[in-house]
């Protein structure tokens, strides 16, 4: 492209062409975080379920702290993106709020546990499903992708099941681990693969 002057018609066409070029900026890599957290959740859920099942020791549920690994690994991601769209910025902000919700919940549970002397992080499971589901749904609304918008309802059902168990006198049991993994499989892994497939086809 040169610095030549243009006719009026060419100018309008050039503006339209450039705007059109920025429309398709989304690429499959934008969904790598969904896959990283999704697969981590599925792997941990199976591992924690198996270990708890065969040892009978509920302490294996602390294995869920391994969910912080994808977050920690993200700090080693090199470089900055070549372009930041308004959509990217919006999604970043949404997930920062969701991340803060995780952090605050964890902090309050730690304080409450310290006061009561009972170590119980089980409430983090339904809350995490709800928070991540909200983030995924909002992402879906931003990118106009129905798979991301609606699949978190499956996770919401699992979370409500867990919360109801708590209110009705039940408590954490090993099946929650599988429910958690299944939720992430349904609303993070599946939609991310579907959208990546759509992008690669287009």
């Amino acid at each position: 492209m040169k610095t030549d002057e243009l006719t009026e018609k060419e100018s309008i066409e050039l503006i339209s062409r450039m705007i059109e070029k920025t429309r398709n900026e989304m690429n499959g890599d934008d969904f790598n975080s969904f896959l990283a957290y999704g697969y981590a959740a599925v792997a941990i859920s199976i591992a924690v379920w198996l270990l708890t099942h065969f040892t009978g020791n509920d302490m294996w549920c602390f294995g869920w702290f391994a969910m912080l690994i994808p977050y920690l690994l993200s700090f080693f991601k090199k470089g900055k993106p070549e372009v930041v769209t308004y959509m990217d910025r919006m999604m970043d902000s949404v997930w920062k709020v969701i991340g803060s919700m995780f952090g605050i919940s964890l902090l309050i549970i730690i304080v409450a546990d310290a006061i009561s002397g009972i170590i119980d992080f089980s409430m983090m499971m339904p809350l995490s499903i709800i928070y991540a589901g909200i983030g995924t749904s909002i992402t879906g609304l931003i990118i106009n992708e129905k798979w991301f918008v609606w699949t978190p309802l499956a996770g919401l059902a699992a979370a409500i099941w867990m919360l109801t168990c708590g209110w009705t006198g039940g408590s954490y049991d090993n099946s929650w681990n599988l429910l958690f993994g299944a939720s992430f499989l349904i609303y993070m892994i599946l939609p991310a693969h579907i959208v990546r497939h759509k992008i690669s086809r287009s």
Partner: peptide, 8 residues
Amino acid sequence: SLLLTVEE
């Protein structure tokens, strides 16, 4: 025109 639709 390119910068119009992106933040940076």
